[in-house]
């Protein structure tokens, strides 16, 4: 009985592997190889970074302020070009000036402050900005606006002024503006940092939903609760990748995280405190999981 899941997994692995051999490295949408980046001489913001991201993956990147995570976002769509090493997007090198336009079509980046990303005074005009830039025809722009506004559930606000919307709504418009280019990878660079809980929830729900439909998502954040949704978590500190793994694996390393200025999701912290007091409790990430564990404990009594 126990052999079946193992062989299944292996089978799929082989399948994936073969596919990637056949189509080159198509499954790896992003490949970061020995990347080093510095703003000024000597002060390296990112050091010798190696990261691979597969199509359809949901990767979270966490790190303290100044860990280089926002710089990383800008290296993914050729806003910055590596000093050493390289960044490949769907096989295209960001160093190649002729590929920049193609790369930006593939990698959409949503930034922190929604106010500073919106170019137009009407929602639909703003969403149209990207499609206009890539030279889409009028009908196609219309279709892209509809697709993008539906994806972020903002269709009813189409004719409104973004300045009169709430933070969460503005950020949803910003996401729509990026989605209208139909990217393969969606990067969110601390896009929830300035939002209230409702706004954050709205954005995260949309991101999760997009990922389910096949979008590759790279979520850069310092809200530990948001990370629990990811397939994989990468921890950056002082420009270096210090940890990588599933959320459960990462949040089991409490000491290392605190040392680099991060923390655990609230539920994990509480479970840890219980464990310190001798309570036998499983690994948890979300409030729901913690509730289940606690209920189990009391059922035993």
């Amino acid at each position: 009985m126990f052999y079946i899941p193992f062989t299944c997994e292996k089978f799929f692995w082989v399948l994936k592997y073969n596919k990637s051999i056949k189509r080159g490295s198509l499954l790896k949408i992003i490949e970061v190889k020995n990347l080093t980046y510095a703003y000024a001489k000597g002060k390296e913001v990112l050091k010798n970074l190696n990261i691979e991201i597969e199509k359809g993956e949901f990767v979270a990147i966490i790190g303290h302020n100044g860990s280089g995570k926002s710089t990383f976002a800008k290296l993914l769509n050729a806003l910055f070009v590596p000093k050493e090493g390289e960044v490949l997007v769907g096989g295209l090198n960001t160093k190649d000036k002729n590929s920049v336009h193609e790369i930006r079509k593939k990698v959409g980046v949503v930034f922190q402050n929604p106010d500073n990303q919106l170019v137009a005074s009407i929602v639909e005009d703003d969403v149209a900005f990207g499609p206009e830039n890539i030279g889409a025809k009028r009908e196609e722009i219309e279709e892209r606006i509809n697709f993008a506004l539906d994806a972020v559930n903002m269709q009813e606000f189409r004719k409104r002024t973004p300045t009169k919307l709430s933070g969460g709504q503005k950020q949803r418009v910003a996401i729509a503006g990026v989605l209208a280019i139909k990217p393969e990878v969606l990067v969110l660079d601390e896009s929830t940092a300035m939002l209230d809980p409702r706004g954050r929830r709205e954005v995260i729900e949309i991101v999760k939903d997009l990922n389910k439909k096949g979008m590759t998502v790279i979520l850069i954040t310092h809200y530990m609760e948001e990370v629990v949704n990811a397939d994989r978590v990468i921890v950056l500190s002082e420009g270096e990748k210090i940890l990588e793994g599933t959320p459960k694996q990462i949040f089991a390393k409490k000491e290392e995280l605190t040392r680099v200025g991060l923390s655990l999701p609230p539920a994990t912290i509480l479970a840890d405190k219980l464990r310190e007091k001798g309570v036998n409790i499983g690994e948890v990430l979300t409030p729901q999981e913690l509730k289940e564990e606690l209920c189990k404990l009391f059922v035993k009594i």
């Binding site: 800008k74 769509n77 806003l79 336009h101 930006r104 079509k105 959409g108 980046v109 930034f111 922190q112 402050n113 106010d115 500073n116 990303q117 170019v119 639909e124 005009d125 149209a128 900005f129 990207g130 499609p131 206009e132 830039n133 890539i134 030279g135 889409a136 025809k137 009028r138 722009i141 219309e142 606006i145 910003a174 503006g177 990026v178 280019i181």
Partner: peptide, 26 residues
């Protein structure tokens, strides 16, 4: 700061001047 961030956001949304650009509202 806003101007800087806006420039990045515009670049990220494939802005590269008027060349090859279309108009949604004619």
């Amino acid at each position: 700061r806003r101007a800087d961030e806006l420039a990045d956001a515009m670049d990220a949304r494939c802005y590269s001047g008027s060349k090859g650009r279309t108009k949604y509202k004619k």
